[in-house]
């Protein structure tokens, strides 16, 4: 059956062992990717003709902002899978996403703010892009608060998943905010449908950084999910065996 892999993914024991095996390798690739991406972006890539070296903040800011939205979508989709198929693993992935996503959002806001001061002339302005990204941070906080405020794990899972799904409407708003309204933030440089508006010498290190940030997300997600598995399956036989060792 083609659905087999899907249901195997739903087995906490299988996920725990798979994640444990892959974890060190993904960490290794992440480390190599981030180090080489940073070196490429900060030292080898040319400065921008207009902003000079300031533009290098992009190599952190863009991946962080990209991941802040991608992680939210994963969180919402995992929540929806949990609700529809009553799958424990999906809930665990969903709740593990929010602290990581919140960290990416925070990083995007801070680096954006530090970039804004020397270029725009201000740390913060309530334009559509900045405000909607700030709302994303609050959505992550709300998701965590809601989950940890409810004692019954099953109820907490459902409530948090519904919040994640409802909040997903903010994602297209963040993405299109710079097109729909006048804002201080410029339009997107990277788009799937258009030629990138960024020179190739800067594009490649940026893409390396984006992929490395994705891997970084996976390498942080895995231990977090494994923790949840141990905690929730603490009465299962295989978990007791691990703990006794």
């Amino acid at each position: 059956m083609t659905w087999n892999w899907f249901f195997r993914l739903g087995s906490p024991k299988w996920f725990y062992q798979m994640a444990g095996r892959w974890q060190p390798w993904i960490w290794l690739i992440t480390f190599i990717g981030i180090v080489s991406g940073c070196y490429w972006g900060l030292f080898i890539a040319p400065p921008d003709y207009y902003q000079g070296d300031l533009q290098r903040i992009m190599y952190i800011h863009v991946p962080a902002a990209y991941l802040s939205m991608m992680v939210y979508v994963i969180m919402a989709v995992a929540g929806a899978i949990g609700l529809i198929w009553r799958m424990k693993m999906a809930y665990m992935v969903s709740i593990s996403c929010s602290p990581i996503g919140a960290a990416f959002t925070f990083l995007a806001l801070v680096t954006g703010s530090l970039w804004g001061k020397p270029t725009w002339g201000t740390y913060w302005v309530f334009d559509a892009r900045l405000t909607s990204e700030l709302i994303l941070l609050f959505l992550y906080f709300g998701h965590m608060a809601l989950f940890y405020a409810i004692d019954d794990v099953k109820k907490a899972d459902k409530a948090a998943a519904i919040l994640a799904i409802v909040g997903v409407v903010n994602i297209p708003i963040i993405h299109f905010s710079v097109e729909w309204w006048n804002s201080l933030h410029q339009d997107a440089s990277l788009s799937k449908l258009q030629k990138p508006k960024i020179d190739e010498a800067m594009l490649w290190p940026l893409l390396v950084m984006i992929v490395s940030f994705k891997l970084f997300f996976v390498s942080v997600l895995f231990p977090w999910v494994r923790n949840h598995i141990l905690w929730r399956e603490k009465d299962a036989k295989w978990v007791k065996e691990i703990i006794e060792q």
Binding site: P46, Q51, G121, L184, A188, K197, I198, D199
Partner: peptide, 16 residues
């Protein structure tokens, strides 16, 4: 107060 916008085009000085 005056804030400067910048656009979404990035390129090295030689290309510009």
């Amino acid at each position: 107060s005056v804030l400067a916008k910048h656009d979404e085009n990035y390129m090295p000085p030689e290309v510009a």
